[in-house]
């Protein structure tokens, strides 16, 4: 059960997330910095709530304290050329 993958993009297991919580992580952001969960292509769209649920179970904290307060741009992957390309392209 603990070897199931929670973050598919970075292949982070439930055990690794439990280890990060034991090492002091109390938020999704804290787990991310310690394990890379949520740092991949989907940027946590799949695993964020799963990670948050595990933290809530382990620490008893409310979800509002665990989830990141805001998202960073972009919402979905964007080609660099769309924003940083030449004006005539």
């Amino acid at each position: 059960m603990d070897d199931i993958i929670i973050c598919r993009c970075q292949e982070v297991t439930r055990q690794e997330i439990l280890d990060a919580i034991a090492a002091g992580a109390t938020t999704v952001d804290g787990v991310k910095r310690r394990t890379r969960a949520g740092m991949g292509l989907c940027q946590g769209k799949t695993c964020e709530r799963l990670v948050a649920k595990i933290i809530a179970e382990q620490t008893g904290r409310p979800m509002a304290e665990i989830l990141p307060p805001k998202s960073r741009i972009p919402v979905r992957p964007v080609k660099i050329g769309i924003i940083g390309g030449k004006d005539d392209e």
Binding site: Q43, I73, P74, I80, G81, G84
Partner: peptide, 30 residues
């Protein structure tokens, strides 16, 4: 916070030096 003005200038500089980057996606600003 991130600003679109800054992201745009960063990406423009990136494409200026590495033209092939225009077809690569960026996934997060910080």
């Amino acid at each position: 916070e991130n600003s679109l003005e800054a992201i745009e200038t960063i990406l423009r500089r990136a494409v200026r030096f590495f033209p092939a980057l225009k077809d690569i996606c960026f996934i997060r600003a910080f």
